[in-house]
Structure formats: structure tokens, C-alpha cells
Amino acid sequence: MSAPRVALFVTCLVDLFRPAVGFASVRLLEAAGCSVEVPIGQTCCGQPGYNAGAREDARGVARATIDVLHGFDYVVIPSGSCAGMIRAHYPSLLADDPRYAAKAQELALRTWELTSFLIEVRGFVAPPGPARTVAYHDSCSGLRELGVREQPRRLLKAAGTAIREPENRDACCGFGGAFSVKYDEISGEIARKKCSALAATEAPLVVGGDLGCLLHLAGRFQREGRKISCRHVAEVLAGIDGPAIGEAGS
């Protein structure tokens, strides 16, 4: 059986803030027997416009993304939120576009969030890593739009990582994309609650599957002066050990 051709859509946040997540994803996908390509014309999935009510702008960006991601066996994204955008929202966003409606449907079926792809499509078992304890933060879109809950936990456990669950674990961290900036005081208050629940697990590292939430939580931990690090689940699984999010390089 030949290796499936996988397009990695890294997301705009990973591209800008955390290239390590992109490289970690490539490493994991290759270890899972995929042939990985990174379409260079990729930019953003369209969520900023879509969630701001700029539907026409979002449609334009979605069409461009569909074109860029055309022709692969799978599209894999290290983010539940962006994968959810393509899987759960592109089809309705472009439903009345005669040229793109079918393409949007078809792309939705081929698009996966990284950890669910590794588990559900590739039956991947992560190689054992160092024994460590982490608190896991579920991102809302992945959790509720795509049913990503057990997949990252199974991968982490197989790699020898112990997982602690914060109280009220299904609660949002308060990121919410543009919400975090537009309603900063509320966003900060929700983050305060989430950070104290995560800190109460006493795990030194918080792991999650969406860089947006992780930037928000890491920034809040740092503002509160807490010594808790944040990393994307792909980095942890791929054994990439550079500085954690928002921490200085050596």
C-alpha cells in the first residue's frame, strides 16, 4: 500500500508564532507512514472573517484555500478550530456557490485534525517518550465540532505521558479568536479561571491541540507569574524540546 499524500495546513498562527508545531506535525505524519507536502500558497482558513460576520470575505478566503488544498488524499491540520472550520463550516458557507459547493463538501470529507487523523485514519501509536505529567486542555471547536477528546489523550498515554484533568474541563479558556482582543477584560477573566483550574492539577506543563488557546493560556500564566509551561500536543508527541510557548530560547 503506497503512502497517502497528505497536505499539511499549518494554520496562520503556527506559521507566524510556532513553526515547531509544523515540523512536529510533519514528523508525526511521516512516522505514521504518510507522504507529507506543505502547499506553499496556504494562508488562513477564513475564520477571522467568518466569525466577524464578514461572510463574503470569508467565502473568498475559503475558495482560495480549497484551491490550494486540492488534489491530496488528506488534509491534516494541527488545530481543531481550523479543521472544524473546513469540515463543519465550509460546506454551508459555500453551499450556494455553483463552482465551489461540491469542492467544499469533498474537501470537508478529506480534512482531519492531526490527533484524530493519527488515531482514526492511521492507527498510529506514538513512540515512547520521557515519562512526564501534563494537564490537558481541550479546545472547544475540536471538542464540540469534531469530537476530539480521547484521541490526543490516547496518543499521549501511549507515549508514556500521565494526564491530569482540570476541574470543569469542558469549560472554554476564553480565547475565542477576535473575542480575546475585542472583549479583553472578559477574555482575561475566563482565562484567570481556566489557569487556576489548570494550576490546581499541579502539572508543570499544559498541553493542548490549538495554538490560539495555548498562546492565550501561556500569556496569562506568564502575566500571573506562574511557572507553568504550555506546549502543543504535536510538539510533545514528536519529542521537540525547544523553549515552551512564550519562553526564551537558550
Partner: peptide, 22 residues
């Protein structure tokens, strides 16, 4: 980006984008 930094720090990126590095 005071909307961001009013209630939390902004983790700084590494400096190069993924697409450039790739």
C-alpha cells in the same frame, strides 16, 4: 495590540515563519 496585552502577555514568535523555514 493592547486588547491582548491588557490582560495577558503575548508569547513572542521564534522569528521565522514556518513557511519560510520549510
Amino acid at each position: 495590540a493592547r486588547g491582548w496585552t491588557a490582560t495577558r502577555d503575548l508569547p513572542a514568535p521564534a522569528g521565522r515563519t514556518f513557511l519560510d523555514l520549510w
